[in-house]
């Protein structure tokens, strides 16, 4: 058991090192000079060269990689070229938007998906099931940025219920801040909910066909109790796996939605940093996200291994 965990940890660490090299290499071949971008049209070549020296861009490649990677190990993420503040400060500000947004979207998605999944599973093959799963199919097919635009025009421009975008900051009051995260969260949650509902339904149906459920029913337990108390609990593993994946996706995959709602989140920070060639910001944040995904995968794998020792050999 311990050997398995240690092996997985070593592999995770190796993956991170490899990922850091990939990220660094990719940013190296990105065309465009951050120094020229900062100084603009009227700066001379000498001025640009001087700024490059100041920014440490002229040091040898390997040295720069080691400097950056070494910094990461001691949780020093470097300084942003454009903002000239520590990257970690930027991350801290942005994660205060992205993390709550991801959590709200995840919560919304779960609140919608689980009841729909249970409803569908309990009426398998009947009209209600068909209707619910049809709606889920539709939900999966809608591009979330298009859905977001429709939401903005309906709820912000016509009905004035919520702001059309922007984030006033948590200092503006929890309710005010939450209100501005509501539409983006809905736009993000709907497609996720559609996927989750389908997974929940099939997992439940699978469990409902297991022997112990039949036994429970044969013993005279009411269907409702069997469904909610026994079946749902056992169907949770695939549902939680998907939730883990979705969480990782929501943390990083919200670039387009953050742009549509001009939210100052992580996704937009990276997007902006790529266009401004703020290399260090891109490198460090991508690494953070990669690390988050690897960590989530690790936790999922470990919890499987604890629940079902047979899986250890196969994974």
């Amino acid at each position: 058991m311990t050997a398995y965990f240690v092996k997985r940890l070593i592999i995770a660490a190796l993956t991170l090192v490899l990922a850091s090299m990939v990220v660094f290499a990719v940013m190296e071949i990105l065309p465009g000079d951050p120094a020229r971008l900062m100084l603009g049209l009227n700066a001379s070549a000498d001025q640009v060269e001087q700024l490059r020296n100041q920014m440490g861009l002229n040091a040898p490649l390997v040295l720069r990689y080691l400097h950056w990677a070494g910094g990461l190990l001691s949780l020093d993420f470097g300084r942003s070229y454009t903002y000239s503040v520590p990257v970690i400060d930027l991350v801290r500000e942005r994660i205060a938007v992205s993390l709550p947004l991801a959590l709200i979207a995840l919560a919304l998605s779960t609140i919608i998906a689980i009841p729909v999944g249970v409803f569908s599973a309990s009426r398998q093959g009947r009209a209600g099931d068909t209707l619910a799963m049809g709606a889920a199919q539709l939900g999966v097919a809608v591009p979330n940025f298009w859905f977001a635009l429709m939401l903005i025009y309906l709820f912000a421009v016509w009905l004035h219920l919520v702001p059309a975008g922007g984030f006033p900051g948590w200092s503006a009051g929890i309710w005010t801040a939450l209100k501005s995260l509501l539409l983006p969260a809905v736009a993000l949650a709907l497609p996720q909910a559609a996927i989750l509902a389908r997974v929940a339904r099939s997992a439940l149906i699978e469990v409902l066909n297991e022997d112990y459920i039949r036994t429970a029913r044969a013993k005279g337990l009411p269907y409702r109790a069997v469904l909610w108390r026994h079946a749902l609990r056992n169907a949770m593993i695939p549902v939680l796996t998907i939730l883990g994946l979705q969480f990782a996706f929501l943390l990083a995959g919200t670039i387009i939605i953050e742009n549509v709602f001009y939210l100052p989140g992580l996704g937009r920070l990276i997007f902006q940093a790529i266009t401004q060639r703020d290399l260090i910001v891109v490198e460090s944040i991508v690494m953070l996200l990669v690390a988050a995904v690897i960590l989530i995968n690790l936790i999922v794998d470990f919890s499987y291994a604890v629940v079902d020792p047979r899986l250890r050999g196969r994974q």
Partner: peptide
């Protein structure tokens, strides 16, 4: 000065009074 990077967001931001 609020940053509205997306041209599409500019119109609703004005219309909604933000």
């Amino acid at each position: 000065f609020r940053i509205v990077p997306d041209a599409a967001a500019a119109v609703p931001a004005l219309l909604s009074g933000d």
